[in-house]
Write a protein that binds this DNA or RNA. Sequence first.
DNA 1: AACGTGACACAGC
DNA 2: AGCTGTGCCACGT
Length: 114
Amino acid sequence: MAGKKNKTSEPNFFKDVYEVVKLIPKGRVTSYGAIANYLGTKMSSRMVGWAMHGCPKGVPAHRVVNRNGLLTGKHHFKPPYMMQRLLEKEGIQVSKDKIVGFADKYWNPSAELL
DNA sequence: AACGTGACACAGC
DNA sequence: AGCTGTGCCACGT
């Protein structure tokens, strides 16, 4: 039979998110909105975060933060301080769950990958 | 099928 | 300057 996917919809969106996140250079960070914008769903930044719920191994979700540079998703890590730990290890300074010099370390997929 | 939820973003107050 | 409401799309129940 035709290879019809039983899934209601292919998680193409999620897959794209993972791909982009994996492409984030070390020592850099990006925001959900940036990824969403790169995927074409600029307003649907929520989906990016939701996609991270299934973040498979190899996806540095700790490099993805909100537009404020705040580690909003760190509470979802195990343990939660793992996110900050990884960021500091990559050379990113974090103060009060916020990226220091976020604008300077900001990585725009729409611009860098373009 | 409908409602509620979710790691966001933006406008309005 | 912080809170609220709305938009967005997908997933869970």
